[in-house]
Design a protein around this nucleic acid. Structure first.
Lengths: 227, 227
DNA sequence: TTTTATCTTAAACGAACGTTTGACAAACAT
DNA sequence: ATGTTTGTCAAACGTTCGTTTAAGATAAAA
């Protein structure tokens, strides 16, 4: 959410305001929930006038939906799409270690897109929060965000796991994997406190190595050479 | 949250109202977040007058804190406490399969306390939500709820896992395990939709078998005989 | 019965909410 | 130069929020 158009000075000003509101809104909504953020604090935090939000997004709900849309737009930059997974699987060999390396690649992409790069962090937290109490936008989010991502994961599980009973197992196990990543984002305060860290900064490699190893094991793959 | 005193008719009336408010509040706060629930809708949903909430709990914040306290009070009924884990580990043998059976027991207790019995479901969702944006009650929750539970888990990991690099690995892996259970609660709507289920009802055994097997693998233990 | 304590209730309070309005400045198009 | 579009702003709108008050109802204690 950092690029901006260069059409004209006046347009650029408005676009910059739009981006500022999307970024500020994502962080505040993720931290405090939709109802926990007032338009006045949001405007103050973004350094704009109260009415500017309604001007650009039609209102509070409009801004919220725009933030969610922003995430679904860059979905494939975070989660490797199903075709990419299939391609990678086709290239790889059939030995357990070779299958495991595909899993490493997938988890590496996930960790890089969500833990290392933090551009879309708050957006993903917002979306994952919507799961607890599905409202009318749930169907849209399910179709445009969750379903494709979890499809990638169940393909990965089905084609790599050493122990996979049936389709239910593949789908549920795919969900278990994404659960781990989501929760790494949401409980980063608790995890850092327990590990004596200030933040994940400087510990990405440690986390990545542990998570990759554990996911390998979860899929019944060799845990020794996670990379 | 179902037992009640029998001191007198009048006292019993008030206590019943208290319990109704705790139950109703837990569900509403879990689904909509603290700021997403108004005292008027809460009172209407519980079938009591608006002022009754303030009478019993001092206000909205008081009810919220009472709900969280309710969960920390029954913490050990959900998460096996550290001493129970150590005792079980001491009884068990040293073979991988015997270690794995201790893990099965732990996961069975967790699934039973949170997925099968649903008394404390909403409370746990509320607590896990507080993780995203720690406030002043975070320290209290960390000390009274999370720290003991995660201590149990890191002991379990340290004493059973076949691949455990160091203390960081044990703590983080313990967190990965609880992440899976928490997310099973929070995203039950999405999971059921993906699996074509109405709810978890009638599928507890399926979930339990898959989760136990996957956790065994995650810890580098034999995945064949999960029970 | 009278008194007291416990619990519920309707009504009102000020504060904060999301939204709308109309005026204003700056950069466009003609 | 002139009118239009675009973006920002302060002020006010009606609504809903959490809280408080004072009165009423019921069971226990005197």
């Amino acid at each position: 959410m950092t690029e901006r158009g260069r059409k004209s000075l006046k347009r650029a000003q408005g676009e910059e305001t739009r981006i500022t509101l999307l970024d500020t809104g994502a962080e505040l909504f993720a931290k405090n929930g939709y109802n926990g953020v007032s338009m006045r604090t949001l405007a103050a935090e973004a350094g704009v006038n109260l009415a500017t939000i309604s001007y650009h997004f039609g209102g509070k709900a409009g801004l919220y939906e725009a933030i969610i849309q922003e995430i679904t737009n860059v979905r494939d930059q975070i989660f490797p799409p199903t075709e990419a997974v299939r391609a990678r699987l086709a290239e790889a060999g059939e030995t357990p270690e070779e299958r495991a390396e595909v899993v490493d690649w997938f988890m590496g992409a996930l960790i890089d897109g969500l833990l290392v790069r933090t551009d879309y962090l708050w957006g993903v937290v917002i979306i994952s929060r919507e799961l607890v109490h599905p409202t009318e936008i749930f169907s849209k989010m399910e179709a445009e965000f969750f379903s494709p991502n979890l499809e990638s994961l169940s393909v990965l599980v089905r084609e790599t796991a050493a122990h996979c009973r049936d389709e239910t197992d593949a789908i549920l196990t795919g969900h278990l994997i994404v659960s781990i990543i989501i929760q790494l984002l949401e409980s980063h305060a608790l995890i850092c406190k327990r590990l004596g860290w200030d933040s994940y900064q400087g510990h990405h490699k440690t986390i990545e190595a542990i998570v990759k190893t554990r996911i390998r094991g979860l899929l019944g793959l060799p845990m020794e050479n996670a990379q």
